[in-house]
């Protein structure tokens, strides 16, 4: 049983993509898990082929004190369990506040009494959720991509969360969209990798791969879309590392 949160350092860095495809890689390895979308965009469901018209999700249920989170769980056609946020309109702030006030209660509600792993997709713009949850998670993947925004965003984040003095055990920076064929991407990536300590860096980078975008466009997981895609190999490698990291020594 492990709880993993995934959050982008800046909008569009790829937290949702990683949450969905990492979950699928773990699932194929036999890990029992549910993937939870806590991002207000409610995009995670697209990775599972959920029709746009369907607007249900766990958020209103949680606000409405529903007894069991499983009421809001969906199962994709390849067997993945996921909990979309659902349409919340203006209640997202209220939701955040409620989770912040008692994060453990929220987590145990999500677990619904079973031993499955939880992969939670957090919104990039919401530092409050990160702060509330970080003490209770086994792994937090802070997703970044090598592009000009990353340096200032990362600095801001590190200063704000005071990571200079102490980094939580669960915290790791996860690189996405690795593209050494692009000079700028490679240079920025090298700088960031050079400046950050090895302990806060995930050893597996996810390559920039058009397969990922195309998979999303066809509302399939990357694995279903193309088995030859390097992204699959990357996510499997990441899953292996995550399992190792989250297993009790």
């Amino acid at each position: 049983m492990a709880i993993i949160t995934v959050q982008s350092v800046f909008s569009g860095a790829g937290a949702t993509t990683i949450a969905a495809n990492l979950s699928n890689a773990l699932l194929r390895q036999g890990t029992k898990l549910s993937t939870v979308d806590a991002c207000s965009h409610n995009d995670l469901r697209l990775w599972y082929g959920m029709p746009l018209a369907q607007s249900g999700g766990w958020a209103l249920g949680y606000l409405g004190k529903a007894p069991d989170s499983r009421e809001f769980a969906f199962r994709s056609d390849f067997g993945a369990t996921f909990l979309p946020l659902g349409e919340v309109s203006d209640k997202y702030d209220e939701l955040t506040t409620q989770i912040e006030s008692d994060p453990q209660q929220w987590l145990s509600w999500l677990k619904a009494g079973n031993d499955d792993w939880l992969i939670i997709n957090l919104p990039s713009h919401c530092a409050r959720l990160y702060q509330a949850l970080i003490p209770y998670v086994d792994l937090h993947l802070s997703v970044w991509q090598a592009e000009p925004r990353v340096y200032p965003r990362m600095q801001q984040f590190i200063n704000k969360q005071n990571l200079h003095s102490e980094v939580p055990n669960a915290f790791v920076f996860q690189e996405n969209g690795v593209a050494p064929q692009l000079e700028l991407n490679r240079d920025i990536s090298n700088i960031i990798n050079h400046e950050l300590a090895d302990e806060v860096l995930s050893p597996v980078g996810i390559m920039r791969d058009q397969h990922i975008t195309e998979a999303l466009a066809t509302q399939q997981s990357c694995y279903e879309y193309s088995i030859a895609a390097s992204a699959n190999a990357d996510f499997v490698e990441l899953a292996n590392w995550v399992v190792k990291k989250c297993s009790p020594a």
């Binding site: 920039r208 791969d209 058009q210 895609a229 390097s230």
Partner: peptide, 15 residues
């Protein structure tokens, strides 16, 4: 040795 092959269309294959 594991490598990645990237095509001009930016499709990446593990090879």
């Amino acid at each position: 040795i594991p490598i990645h092959v990237i095509t001009e269309s930016e499709h990446s294959f593990s090879a």
